[in-house]
Design a protein around this nucleic acid. Structure first.
Length: 234
DNA sequence: GTTGCAATAT
DNA sequence: TATATTGCAA
């Protein structure tokens, strides 16, 4: 379900002609349907229980969930007592998300999974699909401004093949986006961290629709994060 | 070693 | 354009 895509760099030798295939990225699963292409039901149809299951389920076994009075339908909300004990990497790869192969390449038809990329090949470029980004945002918000460091985010997201570098790069852009949003007059509907409520993943239904930043292509990163002269310097 | 960030590369 | 990489300072 949650299938972040990886775009394998084509094995062009010599002069790596980049950009030749960068426009061929596509999204084939629910991401496309739920992408923020101006669809208000963005967060309604999207992840819900099924989407978050891989993240929350292995962390909260049924017994524990029962103890906390949460069920599978409550997968969107993690108990506030969620801590590092449940966040370590688990071998339950079948429960965790995993990069998909990006086949249908135009050039060499070689495909490779992100988890099998260790064969001396170039690392595949990951694609931050809306659902994956959503999970990222959840992790960031869950960890709070202080705790949202790449390492912790990677661990929380629990996505196979997702590296700290991936997250660091994404986080860098994400922060720029947030900063720009706050200063640039664009009121972004993303509470940095709710003060009173305990640190837990926000319910998806309660999630603010990021439609103001959505781009019509179905992929909604953080708008353009080009440094706007002033304002964003820190 | 990790993190954040700017600059740069692909 | 999106993501990766690098270099540098904390």
């Amino acid at each position: 379900m949650l299938s972040p895509r990886v775009v394998r760099p084509q094995a062009h030798h010599g002069s790596a002609s980049a950009g030749s295939s960068s426009s061929r990225r596509h999204m084939v699963d629910a991401d496309a349907a739920n992408a923020c292409g101006g669809v208000p039901e963005w967060e309604v149809g999207l992840p819900s229980a099924a989407e978050l299951t891989p993240l929350s389920q292995p962390l909260v076994p049924p017994a524990l969930a029962a103890a906390f009075g949460i069920g599978p339908a409550d997968a969107g909300a993690l108990p506030s007592s969620l801590d590092a004990r449940f966040l370590h990497d688990s071998p339950t790869s079948h429960l965790s998300s995993r990069f998909d192969d990006y086949d249908e390449e135009e050039g060499e038809g070689e495909t490779e999974d992100a988890a099998t990329e260790g064969r001396g090949e170039k690392k595949a470029r990951m694609v931050w699909t809306p659902s994956l980004h959503h999970r990222f945002v959840e992790a960031v918000e869950h960890l709070g401004e202080k705790g949202a460091v790449p390492k912790a985010i990677v661990r929380l997201m629990n996505v196979d093949g997702l590296t700290r570098e991936n997250v660091a790069s994404h986080l860098q852009k994400y922060r720029l986006y947030l900063r720009r949003s706050r200063h640039g007059g664009v009121t972004i509907t993303q509470p940095p961290q709710a003060p009173p409520p305990p640190p837990c993943f926000p319910r998806l239904a309660a999630q603010a629709p990021p439609q103001d930043t959505a781009n019509r292509n179905g992929y909604c990163p953080f708008v353009s994060y080009t440094t706007s002269s002033d304002a964003i310097k820190q």
